[in-house]
Design a protein around this nucleic acid. Structure first.
Lengths: 142, 142
DNA sequence: AACTACATTATAATAATTCTAAACTGTTGA
DNA sequence: TCAACAGTTTAGAATTATTATAATGTAGTT
């Protein structure tokens, strides 16, 4: 369990002013055992329900994007109508359950390293993401 | 060059009525040498500019989704504000140029098959997508 | 304490997509 | 051939996710 004062320090380290709202959002996002996947909407609900706080929607967007830019959150590519974020910023891949719209982390043992043999001249690789989409297997019960 | 009557047949095979609009869209999408990546907006522009046709926006959405559902088009996962589609429906991966927002196909020689060692009980794998994000390499010139 | 640059906020604006309900059109079968 | 019906198209309204705006608030510095 990370103390709030640590969030203040952390925010300062990232070059972000430790405002009330940002510290609160750190508490919701990073006071966790397991990595956490969410959409902006999930987060807004969590803040208002679980924490009984009111942070403006615009601030939630601003702050999540600030955290992402500083590498404190990772955005995950899922073709969808909304953006997903991940508190696990290390290189790792995901399963996406198309039934429940839930993300599941792959750890490094789940998927072998992806070997890319092509490169685009003048461009550098920023990220390599594998997304495995799964859905309930209805073949058997049909 | 595929003839229009072939599109009519193809549509019927897929269980879709070969309406004027659908045949026109087939012409724009599939009368090509190379695989084609696009957003709905790209497609609407192509139809009105290149073909001088007017097809309602709702119809373009309906038709693209119908084609996708029937496996005649593939949707590509890119974290973004819009959906990307691909006329190449075979299993293959992509480079995404973050500067120009362009997609580049990887053929099977560019990326080794992805080996997934985890499986989720009761779920089957619908797709495995690798997205390699690239951007201009400014390190050297800075 | 006061100044200033950065943050927050409510609200408006925008963008992508889906919904609606009326008009239209392939297809089928008499 | 033509009527009938189910599937389609359409314009426009509605919805959803996100970004912009401009006024107000606040953290950090002097």
């Amino acid at each position: 369990m990370v103390k709030n004062c640590n969030f203040v320090e952390k925010l300062r380290d990232l070059g972000l002013r430790p405002t009330k709202q940002r510290v609160k959002m750190c508490e919701v996002l990073f006071n966790r055992e397991k990595t956490f996947h969410f959409t902006i909407n999930d987060l807004v609900k969590l803040i208002s329900n679980e924490m009984n706080e009111k942070i403006s929607l615009a601030t939630v967007y601003n702050t999540v994007h600030a955290f992402q830019k500083k590498g404190y959150l990772k955005e995950i590519s899922i073709n969808s109508d909304k953006s997903y974020f991940d508190t696990n910023t290390s290189v790792h891949h995901h399963f996406y359950d198309e039934d429940t719209h839930q993300l599941i982390d792959c750890d490094e043992n789940d998927i072998d390293p992806v070997n890319i043999k092509k490169n685009i001249t003048g461009k550098k690789i920023n990220s390599v993401e594998v997304l495995v989409k799964v859905a309930s297997d209805n073949q058997t019960q049909k």
